Measured scan of single mutants.
Amino acid sequence: EPLWIRPDAPSRCTWQLGRPASESPHHHTAPAKSPKILPDILKKIGDTPMVRINKIGKKFGLKCELLAKCEFFNAGGSVKDRISLRMIEDAERDGTLKPGDTIIEPTSGNTGIGLALAAAVRGYRCIIVMPEKMSSEKVDVLRALGAEIVRTPTNARFDSPESHVGVAWRLKNEIPNSHILDQYRNASNPLAHYDTTADEILQQCDGKLDMLVASVGTGGTITGIARKLKEKCPGCRIIGVDPEGSILAEPEELNQTEQTTYEVEGIGYDFIPTVLDRTVVDKWFKSNDEEAFTFARMLIAQEGLLCGGSAGSTVAVAVKAAQELQEGQRCVVILPDSVRNYMTKFLSDRWMLQKGFLKEEDLTEKKPWWWHLRVQELGLSAPLTVLPTITCGHTIEILREKGFDQAPVVDEAGVILGMVTLGNMLSSLLAGKVQPSDQVGKVIYKQFKQIRLTDTLGRLSHILEMDHFALVVHEQIQYHSTGKSSQRQMVFGVVTAIDLLNFVAAQERDQK
């Protein structure tokens, strides 16, 4: 057995438009009618409502009807409940999964919650491996369901041993009777949507819809739904939504950006999952974080739909894509998950301010006199920076000697690579993860907040409520011999709460 199987392995699926269902090699399930009293909570997966979006479509000038398939009504709160249950049931049916076995899954959280929910009911041990950027709410729900959680670096490539995929496979090879159901490759993922989600949409719309818009992560949702719609409703256009920084969209030119990270969760990847059939997507749109969270908040405030950030991405694209539809036509959007997962993220004004998705003037509360002053007023001194090749031991000596707790790590040209902190280095040394002679590049981390000289002290204040420091950066445009230009970030300084307090105190003292 291989040590790991690539999540982007070539698909062996034989589905073709027009091929009889009787030739399918898979076990198919028909939607079942729910009894009045459910035998367990797993029976509350599927049969989610279709809700008309009344205000947002009109606000953006849509002539067509805009409908939302509300997947956050599933038992675990997301569309991923469907595939989690289906993968477990299919693994039980073919004898792969037996009582007492362990389920391991690399996930952005929602599939993990679905699997942990099913594992709690069915009696399996469950280990979820997820990147650090995923919300604390997801972690809390997983723990409450009895799952064990392993976190991995957000910026690790999918084929790196440190990625959530790599760590999951390492655990599988170490733990007896453990299984990775593997949402990236498992046919049960798109089949769950082909058999149930798509049929529900067709039934709820009486077979009449002209466009379907869905955000894409593993691709199982859009693949399964689109294949069924292509068979039953061939005139329906399928629109895929991919965040900026991901590479799922086609044509490839759409993916060209210097951005590699994004805040919206559960969609987009740096590889093409095996289950994603991009041939059934008629057109791709890219979405960005700001519009995703703005539209998610709009869905909550104006439509009462308590959905997550990827739902915002989907609707932001839908109001663009559906401009081509006329009166009497219908566009369906998939709202994948609930706001429950993001209470401390985009639902929080403070978080939105820190990330730059909300401006101070958007909030009406009274601010102190210094709130709208610029960061450049602080008069920061030149920063202490270190090269990635310097040793951890030497870096600790320098920081202690100069009285700093942290320093930016830059390359020879001064471009920011990340940050090192005294606390992080000492804990890594004590844990045996690094040696004093190791290069400081081994303990770089990139989960820090950046701020510009033109940003306000109010925004800085919000950042420092949650973080010990902020890195002050400025952009530099560099022209190359080819005539092309590129933008790079340079370090201007490091600012802490002490710097802000000293500035405010000094100004008030001078005024007296």
Rank of each mutant, 00 (worst) to 15 (best):
G309S: 05
R488S: 15
P383D: 03
Q329Y: 08
A311D: 14
K345G: 04
E360P: 04
F295G: 07
A301C: 15
D467G: 11
A497C: 07
K449E: 11
R459T: 13
K484L: 13
A316C: 04
E291L: 10
L358A: 15
K366W: 08
L378P: 12
L380P: 11
K359S: 13
L464Q: 11
P368L: 14
T279C: 12
K286C: 03
V415I: 14
Q489Y: 10
V332H: 01
G356V: 01
R297S: 03
C331I: 09
K446L: 11
I238S: 01
V494W: 01
E244L: 03
W351I: 01
L426G: 11
S287W: 01
I416W: 05
A311N: 06
D282A: 07
A292P: 03
L299T: 11
R340D: 04
L276R: 03
D362G: 10
A382I: 01
N424V: 12
A321V: 13
Q487E: 10
E290P: 09
M490R: 12
L426H: 11
V494S: 13
A292D: 07
R459E: 01
R350I: 07
P368S: 10
Y445G: 01
T385V: 05
G304F: 01
W371Y: 15
L500R: 04
V241F: 08
I463W: 01
I390Y: 15
R374G: 10
E361L: 09
F469W: 10
L353P: 03
K446P: 09
T389A: 01
S287R: 01
F346T: 04
I238G: 01
I444V: 11
F492H: 14
H394G: 01
V332S: 05
E290L: 14
Q439W: 14
V386A: 10
H468N: 14
S348G: 01
L399I: 09
M466S: 11
F271V: 04
A292F: 01
R509Y: 08
G309D: 14
V434W: 05
Q478W: 11
L453R: 12
V264F: 01
V280N: 01
I498A: 15
Q450W: 12
H480C: 10
Q489R: 01
L353S: 08
A318D: 01
A470M: 15
Q406V: 01
N288R: 10
S461V: 13
R374A: 15
Q259I: 14
M343E: 01
K433S: 08
G418C: 07
M490E: 15
F448Q: 15
E324L: 06
G483V: 11
L373V: 12
G240S: 07
R488D: 06
T257H: 05
T364I: 14
Q450V: 07
N255L: 08
Q259V: 15
I396K: 04
Q487S: 10
F404A: 05
K433W: 01
E475F: 08
L358R: 09
G483E: 12
A296H: 04
L417F: 12
R452F: 10
L380M: 13
S486W: 08
T456C: 09
H372C: 13
E263G: 04
K366G: 09
A407Q: 08
L347S: 09
V409G: 08
W284K: 01
C307R: 01
G403I: 07
L426Q: 07
V420W: 01
I416H: 09
T421C: 05
L500D: 01
I451G: 08
V264P: 05
G441V: 07
K512A: 14
V410C: 10
A296Y: 01
I416V: 12
V264R: 01
D362I: 01
F285Q: 01
G441T: 01
R278I: 01
Y479Q: 13
L305A: 01
D467E: 12
L500K: 01
D289Q: 01
A470Y: 01
I398L: 11
G414N: 01
L501W: 07
T456S: 08
I267L: 05
L387Y: 09
Y479S: 11
Q435N: 15
P336Y: 06
T261H: 14
V410G: 12
D510Y: 15
L430D: 08
G403L: 01
T314R: 01
A321Y: 08
K320E: 09
E475S: 01
L254P: 01
Q450M: 14
I416R: 08
S313V: 11
L335V: 12
L254H: 13
C392S: 07
Y262N: 01
E263I: 05
I451L: 14
V319R: 01
E397S: 04
V420C: 15
K355S: 08
L417C: 15
I396Y: 07
G328R: 13
K320R: 06
T279H: 14
L305I: 10
G423L: 08
K345D: 01
P388R: 15
Q323R: 13
T456E: 15
H394S: 07
S381Q: 07
E324T: 11
L399F: 13
S481E: 14
Q447G: 05
V410H: 11
G328S: 11
K449L: 14
T395R: 06
R459K: 13
D277P: 04
L363W: 15
L430P: 15
V386G: 05
E377I: 09
L430F: 13
Y269S: 01
E401R: 05
I334T: 14
T294K: 05
R374F: 10
K449M: 09
V319D: 05
S485Y: 10
G493C: 14
K484D: 03
L347C: 14
K286H: 05
Q435F: 12
T385F: 08
I272L: 09
F448W: 14
E291R: 12
T279L: 11
A470F: 06
H462Y: 12
V275G: 01
G328E: 07
L353G: 08
L464Y: 06
V409L: 01
L378D: 01
L335A: 06
G268S: 04
K446H: 13
E265I: 01
Q256I: 10
P408W: 11
L387N: 08
R400S: 06
T279F: 09
E508C: 10
G403D: 14
A301G: 13
D411R: 11
L335N: 05
L353H: 01
R297F: 01
A382L: 14
T261F: 15
G483Q: 13
V275H: 01
V241K: 01
F346W: 03
I477P: 01
V410W: 07
L358P: 08
S481I: 10
F469D: 05
G423S: 08
P368I: 15
A470T: 12
R459L: 09
D270W: 01
Q450G: 06
M298I: 12
G418S: 11
